[in-house]
Amino acid sequence: MSRGSRRKQAVQRGLYWALLLLPLPVAVYTIGLGRYEIPPGDVAQALYDYAVSSHDPAFEPDIEYNLVTRIRLPRIAAAMLIGTSLAVTGAAFQGIFRNPLVDSNILGVTSGAGFGAALMLLLNAGMVYVQMSAFFFGLLAVMLAFLVSRLYYSAPMLVLTLVGILVGSFFGSLTSLLKYVADPLDTLPAITYWLLGGLTGVTRSDIPALLVVTLSGMVFMWMVRWRLNVLSLGDGEAQALGLNPTRIRLLIIVVSTFMTAMAVSVGGVIGWVGLVIPHAARTLVGPDHQRLIPVSMAMGAVFLLLIDTMSRTLWASEVPLGVFTGIVGVPLLLVILRVNKTGWQ
């Protein structure tokens, strides 16, 4: 091997690890940002106390400690977990659908979740019910897409994609219907704001479920990262290489759907992360899912964290998250597609 290619590999490995570790410093820095600014050193101290000293009965929490751990940490954790989920499921879906223009939305999970949330908001139910309903209808939409696609025989993946888009549109129309009948002074704004996405209402109690689903999903995606390479060659070749593409793909879709439904039920409809981040990651570390999957997770976390920080600090009143991801994500994607020479053809 030539010295040049060895150096290139060392640079690539360095970039890979830098990207994987990036979420940590970004998190510590952004926790400090806000109406009440805290220097990164104090944030680190508060986080250290949270992990270690707080178990000591003599520990006296100060205002920084309370602000960091009670107010900002849940929100920052939610932003990172949701960003990770949306990005890694986007990367996985692009691999299994062999299509760089899809994300985990393609089977209707987000539209279903949006309808579920709108339904509960219309009934003035509490946030817990809104989340549960969003989660449930997200899963229901994908299940529906699967069952309906079984009625057709030709080109299963193509039919599934088509039916997924149709089911998504169907739930979108149902949501519009709910908005139409909603009270314009009360429930309509609530539904509209929820559909725009945002982490304003995130509290500590939202984190455990989100954390469990996201972490298990991440472990699963990590384990199938090599198989995603093989699946992206197409079913015939995956079979010839000894895989059962139908079964693995189904598993990946189920796990992705759980992750996405969970993310949407907490954060509302947040678009573009699942499309932009895998492309950005592919530009930086190449298409090999062994690196693409972990890097998509890390970059998704960083991206949504930065977007959420912007949405809560730039102006006095918060800008909805789902609006910002599009405003930042679309130009970013355009730049990536221009720069990218080796991502996809």
Binding site: G95, R98, N99, P100, N229, S232, L233, G234, G236, E237, Q239, A240, L241, G242, L243, N244, R282, G286, P287, D288, T342, G343, W344, Q345
Partner: peptide, 22 residues
């Protein structure tokens, strides 16, 4: 399947994958 693929291999007709693997 994996045992079979250790003994019998298939080389498909030339194709272009979606992603630019090395």
């Amino acid at each position: 399947a994996h045992k079979r693929a250790q003994r019998v291999g298939m080389v498909p007709q030339m194709h272009s994958p979606v992603f630019a693997y090395t």
